[in-house]
């Protein structure tokens, strides 16, 4: 299985773990992740404005590049996934944006959202299959109670992301089960961690992240996992509570027995 891969800036710097454990796990599962050549930063947040295209162009370039490679585009970071998926939706549905982008980029043929953007978790669920994943697990995480933290970006807006039920998702729970661990279901798993507010108003991020962690802990979580570097930061740096937080790729690599070599 060959996929184009968009790691995103943070995975090259502060979130190297998210990236390298993903690559090691993918290799163990027979998945080839081909990093896109010369990708640019997605911008971190989806530009909602209907009247500007400049902020969408870096995403379009990545999407176009995957189209040229003829591959589905795999993302790892929740934020990049949200931006690429939403911009791709614009390109598939908003004729005004399609035309402006085509004109600006001098495209021979307009890009209309042909690339399929999938998050690595979706690849595990739909491409590999959790039953198949289970067969590759060599070190099951027996008895560990893991609380998945979705945050906002993987799920919302639900119709565009089409990732899972935005109010009662199950993909990460099933992922955790496949690794032999026990998922903790808790209501705050899709509430905001405080996001980029940590930069300006740390108190907000502290309050939000703590509320999330408290709820996970109250439901028996021994560990939390996430796909987002900023969520990981807020939960480890800003939350009071001390539940360890890891990238989902780290527990994956551990269960697949490839953590050490990663």
């Amino acid at each position: 299985m060959v996929y184009s891969y968009y790691p995103g800036c943070t995975l090259k710097t502060k979130a190297k773990d998210l990236d390298r454990y993903a690559r090691a796990s993918a290799a163990a599962l027979g998945i080839e992740l081909q990093e896109l050549p010369d990708w640019q930063c997605c911008g971190g947040v989806y530009p909602m404005a209907k009247d500007e295209i400049a902020t969408k162009l870096s995403s379009v370039r990545a999407l176009l590049s995957a189209k040229e490679q003829g591959n589905d585009l795999v993302t790892m970071c929740s934020a990049c996934h949200n931006v690429l998926k939403q911009v791709n939706h614009d390109m598939a549905t908003d004729e005004n944006i399609v035309t402006k982008v085509a004109n600006y980029m001098k495209l021979d043929e307009p890009y209309r959202g042909e690339t399929k953007v999938i998050h690595f978790l979706e690849l595990l669920r739909d491409g590999v299959g959790f039953d198949e994943l289970k067969k590759h697990v060599v070190k099951p995480l027996k008895g560990v109670k893991i609380a998945p933290y979705y945050g906002c970006l993987l799920l919302r807006p639900g119709k565009v992301m089409a990732f899972d039920d935005p109010e009662n998702p199950a993909i990460m729970e099933n992922f955790i089960k496949a690794l032999g661990a026990e998922p903790v279901v808790y209501a705050m798993r899709n509430e905001c961690c405080g996001g980029y507010a940590t930069l300006e108003k740390k108190a907000i991020a502290e309050k939000k992240a703590t509320a999330v962690m408290d709820n996970a802990a109250a439901n028996g979580a021994q560990m939390m996992i996430t796909a987002c570097p900023l969520c990981l930061y807020n939960l480890t740096k800003n939350a009071q509570g001390g539940v360890p937080v890891k990238y989902f790729t780290e527990v994956l690599a551990e269960a697949l027995g490839v953590k050490e070599e990663a």
């Binding site: 995103g8 800036c9 943070t10 710097t13 502060k14 979130a15 930063c41 911008g43 971190g44 947040v45 530009p47 902020t55 970071c77 934020a79 996001g195 980029y196 940590t198 930069l199 300006e200 987002c228 570097p229 900023l230 990981l232 930061y233 480890t236 740096k237």
Partner: peptide, 12 residues
């Protein structure tokens, strides 16, 4: 530890 993502997002 602050991820780049936070700074980029805040600027956006």
């Amino acid at each position: 530890d602050l991820p780049q993502q936070a700074i980029v997002s805040a600027f956006r």
